[in-house]
Amino acid sequence: MVEVTRLSGSTVVLNADLIEKIEATPDTVVTLTTGACFVVRESVAQVINAVIDYKARVFKSPVRGEAHPSLTVLPGVES
């Protein structure tokens, strides 16, 4: 989930997996795959970085900071 700020100052949390595109028009417009659009204060780069940070947290092991075990290639299995 990615928290962004609407132009009105209110915050909204978006599902990062549903982001279809991010445009600078010059305001930043985030469009979801559902068709919903959000005009936000953050720049395109800030939204992209927030998505990257979120996904990095999701795919890290909470114990050792390594890749999540379900994403590890097993010995003897080629990718």
Rank of each mutant, 00 (worst) to 15 (best):
V73K: 08
V51Q: 02
V12C: 11
A50E: 03
E23V: 13
S10A: 15
L71M: 15
V12H: 06
V58Y: 04
Q46T: 10
V44S: 04
M1P: 03
G35H: 09
E78W: 07
I48M: 05
V30T: 01
V73M: 14
V4S: 02
V63F: 10
V47D: 00
L71V: 04
G9H: 05
S61A: 15
T34G: 06
K60I: 03
D17M: 11
A67W: 12
L32A: 07
E3N: 07
T28K: 02
D53M: 12
T11E: 12
V4N: 02
S43H: 06
V40N: 00
G65H: 02
E66F: 13
V30Q: 00
T72L: 15
E20K: 13
K55I: 10
V13M: 14
S70Y: 10
S61G: 15
S8T: 11
G9S: 07
T31C: 08
V29Q: 01
E3M: 11
A45F: 11
S70V: 10
V77M: 12
T72M: 15
I19D: 01
F38M: 05
V12W: 04
T31P: 01
Q46F: 07
I22W: 01
A67T: 08
S79G: 15
V44L: 12
V40K: 00
D17G: 07
E3I: 08
L71R: 13
Y54L: 10
V12P: 02
V2H: 00
V58N: 02
L7G: 06
H68V: 11
K60Y: 04
T31K: 03
F38W: 04
C37K: 09
T31I: 08
I48Q: 02
V30N: 00
T28I: 08
P26D: 08
T11H: 12
C37P: 02
V44R: 01
P26Y: 06
R6W: 14
S8H: 08
D27K: 10
L74M: 13
V12Q: 09
M1R: 08
V77D: 07
D53H: 08
I52L: 09
I52G: 03
G35K: 07
